[in-house]
Every structure is written in C-alpha cells, then in structure tokens.
Nucleic acid binder design. Sequence first.
DNA 1: GATCACTTTACGGTTTCCCGTAAAAAACTT
DNA 2: AAGTTTTTTACGGGAAACCGTAAAGTGATC
Lengths: 222, 222
Amino acid sequence: MFNKVLIAEDLDSISVAVIQALEMLSVVEIHHAKYCDDAYLKIKKALLDKVPYNLLISDLSFKTDHRENKLTSGEELIEAVKKVQPDIKTIVFSIEDKSFRIKSLFNTLGINAYVSKGRNSLPELQTAIQRVYENEDKIISNELSHTLRGKSIFEIEAYDISLLKLLSKGYILDEIAKELKEAGISPNGSSSIEKRINKLKVYFKASNNVHLIAITKDLGLV
Amino acid sequence: MFNKVLIAEDLDSISVAVIQALEMLSVVEIHHAKYCDDAYLKIKKALLDKVPYNLLISDLSFKTDHRENKLTSGEELIEAVKKVQPDIKTIVFSIEDKSFRIKSLFNTLGINAYVSKGRNSLPELQTAIQRVYENEDKIISNELSHTLRGKSIFEIEAYDISLLKLLSKGYILDEIAKELKEAGISPNGSSSIEKRINKLKVYFKASNNVHLIAITKDLGLV
DNA sequence: GATCACTTTACGGTTTCCCGTAAAAAACTT
DNA sequence: AAGTTTTTTACGGGAAACCGTAAAGTGATC
C-alpha cells in the first residue's frame, strides 16, 4: 500500500473521514492540507527532502476566506503538482458529478481516479485507492460510471462553453462575434453564433437565452 | 445534553465526522439518515413511540439519485418536521454561505442555529449544539457572523427572488405578469415588473437579463 | 378632502433577440 | 475539376427586451 499520502480538502468534516479511511488501509503517513497552496508546498518540501508523496487525494472546490491563495482549486493544484512531480498518483474526491467536467479531468490533467462524494463514497474511495496502487488507471466510482456512459449524440464542445460563458457575462451577439474574432476562434459571424446558440437552446430545451443560461449554470457548464 | 439526535446528511464522509462530534459531547442516541424522506419517517416514528428526538441536524442540499423522494432538500425536511413536532430543535449544517438564504432559514423556518461547513466547522458545530441545548437561539457560526452583518441598503426580498426564478425558467415579461396575477402577488403589471428587474440589474451590475440570471445563479439566489 | 410623495401601470421608440430563408464559402466525393 | 454536401455568413421581418416619460393609483398628513 502507499506509505505517504496527502489529502487536500478544506472541509474538516470530510477530511477526518478520509483520514480514517486511509488508516483502515494501513497507510502509515497521512498528511492533510486545508488550502491548495499548503498542499503544494508540502509536496515540494517532501520532494526536496527526498521523501516524496506517493498519492494526492484532492477536492476540486475550496472555499475562499481571508487568506490570499495562489492556487484556488483542485484543478490548479493538480496541474501545479504534476509539474514538479509528474509521477505522483492523483485521485479527485469531489461532489462534482457533471460528466463533461470529469472527463476533462482525466484528459487534460491525467488524474488516475475520480470518486464522487456521495452516500457510499468512503468504501468507493478505499477501493479506488487500492486499484490506483495496483497501477490501474482511469477509475471512476460506481455511482457515476453509468452517467458517463449514457452519452448524447450532440457533444458539447469547448466552443459551446465559450459561447455560454460570453453570454453569461452579458455580451450581446455582436460583441461575442467581435470577441471571437479577436481570439481567432471561428465560426465568428454573428449569424453562425446565433445558430449555434439556437442548437444549444434546442438541446437543453430552453425557450430563450435567459433560460439557457439558467439551465447550463445549473449543470455547471459555466 | 440532548439524549436523542438525528442527523440528516447524504454524504457519508461528512456524517461519520458529525457522529463522532456528537459522541464527544456524550449524546447517547445518535441516528443518521441519508435521505430526507428517511429522516422524516424516523422522526414521525419516534414521536409515535413516545421517544421523540430532541434535536435535528440537517444539511440543506441532498444529491438526487435513482430513488424517488418527496422531500428533496433540508428546507423541505425541516418544514415538514416542524409540522409534526414543532418543539424540536434544529441546526442546519451546510456549505451554503449566502446571507440571504441563511436569514430566511431563521425567519421562515425558525431554525435554532446555522453552522457553515468550513475549515473549522466541527468545533463550531459542537458549541452550537451546546448553546442550543442551553436554549440559546439564532446562533450563527463564527466564520459567517461577519458576512451577515455587512448588509446592503437594497434588500432583496422574496418578491425579487420570484421574479428571478420565473425569468430563469425562460418566462417573458407578459408571462411573468400573468403568473403573478394568478398567484395574487402584486405588483404584477408588466411595466412594474420590468422596472423591478431593472433595479436588480443596476444593483447586480448586470448589462441584461441573461447577465442578471448568470450573476444571481452564482450567488445562489435562484 | 385637498395636497403631496410615492408606487404602480401605461405607452412609444429603439435595440436586441429570435427564427426562417437564402447566398457564399469550404470541405468532401467521384 | 465539376458536382455535392456541409458549414458559415448575410439578410429581413416579427417578437421581446430595453429605456425613458407620462399617467393613474395609493396612502399619509394636515
């Protein structure tokens, strides 16, 4: 089993449970950080001292408070950590359950497992740790695996997300067109953008732009 | 100390920690429900058996899954519980930190304490339980008390929330007017509604309706 | 009950959204 | 290379949002 594990989790109510779960797996060294910055520093320090961590278990969202932090999310933390220690194993333990976001965690960050906080997540987390230790990869906890399978024909792409983001910032069509042109993204004619937004409205069964943003906000796409 | 306490919390990672915290306060009977419906049934059953709960500690948001549930949120649960057992003490333990929503919990549901899940929430939860036991009321955990003080001049009322809710459902002005008339809420002239939405746009610095909904969604108002 | 302050509603003009159609451009086929 | 399909862009008309102003209603005060 892993002998040195770091947990990045802000909620104390969750971290105590995770620590307990790790103890049951007889991990000897279990460390915990409440802020991403702290977690990053611990990993760098351990690396310098030649006693690096084998595994990082991280949440995605961290509450903001009085403290100024460079790294504010699990994504940022993992990205930064992988730069200094590419061989570290990573498990994301988060409440997030939107397939779009989880997929991108595997693809862009190369995490080893994703466990969704839920009604039976502690055992799932334990088996995920076990399987990652045995060098398995791309592990998704039970509760989620079904939602990730049922994929829709119409795949939401990064382009659609940018449109939704710009819309949610209050931009009007012409402004979005201008923005995309400057960013070198195409299609960028206001008519095409209009059409694409229309597709999104059909797909999400939204009756207008306001409705569309409300729905996609709920889904965590923006 | 309370001798019979019910915890309504879906995440197992959190409930084990809360149970532990209660044990430290030497609560003898600690029960736990992962679904609002289960919690409600437990409370009703205990009441019938003449061994009622003294305290309910509830989360606000519960994940949805395959199971069909009547009660889907902590608010609904507390409202239902208070109808069958008005004297029960209630503490909300949630990640929510929007002053508007917390205020309404005290005012409309009459909860006894609110503890925000955070970096030091377990001790805060313990003292809250202690103080509720000593018949103190309207307790707000440390981390939040400051944010609730700094109040704005323009108070967002329930009326505004309904407008935003209807907007986010994709309703157009005339439809909103119609809806409000049927619900007996006034003002309900489309012009007044327009003006009110305009005030909200100024207040939230939104450039149009889409932007407004994006912002208020982020704030958790809708 | 007349005056004043404030709220609610009505109305009109401009802008943007919404939606269909069609032209232009690009990509693909043979 | 010519034809076909698909994607992108352009255009136009009607609906809704946007924004200012004016009228009608409401309530408090004296």
